[in-house]
Design a protein around this nucleic acid. Sequence first.
DNA 1: TCCGATTAGTTGTTTATGCAACTAAAAGAA
DNA 2: TTCTTTTAGTTGCATAAACAACTAATCGGA
Lengths: 146, 146
Amino acid sequence: MVKVTEREIFDILSGKISRAINRTVLKAFSQEGIDITTEQWTILSCLWNKDKIIQQEICDLTQKDKPSVTRLIDNLEKKDLVRRVLDPSDRRNNLIHLTSRGISLKQKTTEVVNGIVNHALKNISDDELISAKDVLLRIMYNLNLY
Amino acid sequence: MVKVTEREIFDILSGKISRAINRTVLKAFSQEGIDITTEQWTILSCLWNKDKIIQQEICDLTQKDKPSVTRLIDNLEKKDLVRRVLDPSDRRNNLIHLTSRGISLKQKTTEVVNGIVNHALKNISDDELISAKDVLLRIMYNLNLY
DNA sequence: TCCGATTAGTTGTTTATGCAACTAAAAGAA
DNA sequence: TTCTTTTAGTTGCATAAACAACTAATCGGA
């Protein structure tokens, strides 16, 4: 049995796969004429799941920090995909509302992302995938991502 | 048996773990008084393994594109950790040489990174890890990372 | 030998991330 | 009520990544 070295694990987890996925998704969006980045899609998909949430909740869902989310929302607003709406009951909060353009991107982009994920998972059995996912979740837990 | 959804896999692979690792390593370096980023460490560690290689080889080893490597080398040169040396036998090539400062960072930083990886892998058995690594390598293969 | 193709590297622009410092609003304690 | 603390969000600055367009050097075929 071959020992797995720290360096191999570091290499895999520290960005090679995520950069590859982000590149692939970005390219596929572009080919479909969809003008959003992978990160912007991540924000939108939080909102498709639950609309009108505050930025801090998006931070928690995506594990991004507040400045990152501020600027992603800035860019999504410029593209008329979301709108910041002040919460009247707590004026510290921005409620992020999907626009109709934002809503309309859901179906097509989700198909694109699912296609890429399924391609990435080609020839990997459900058992292997469940076990690998379990390991990755425990790594996230150990890194305090819970 | 619970089905693993594309979205769960996307979430895990698209950046949460890599951002967490990069943040953790950066913070640990900073606490040890080591002034380099995680990405710069990745470049240095290619050179610790094999010194005096060209930038294109670093691109291949790290799966980063040429502009990314150009700028990482720029920053490493500013910190006097590497030096660009023109290859006399092929003047298109920059041979990247470690400086003595660059060499001196190897031991301490490698300990830091290994410690973080081992912490991330806490309570994960060798069997599980080997299986998860195999899945991740096949994902990388499917994403044409080689 | 010469010219087009390939290879190595750089630069410009946009987007994203990490961290620190900041403002504004709300919550809590004396 | 007032003052301190906490929470939500923004801004500034440095680093990194994706992509396209570019220069310079080498290679290879006619």
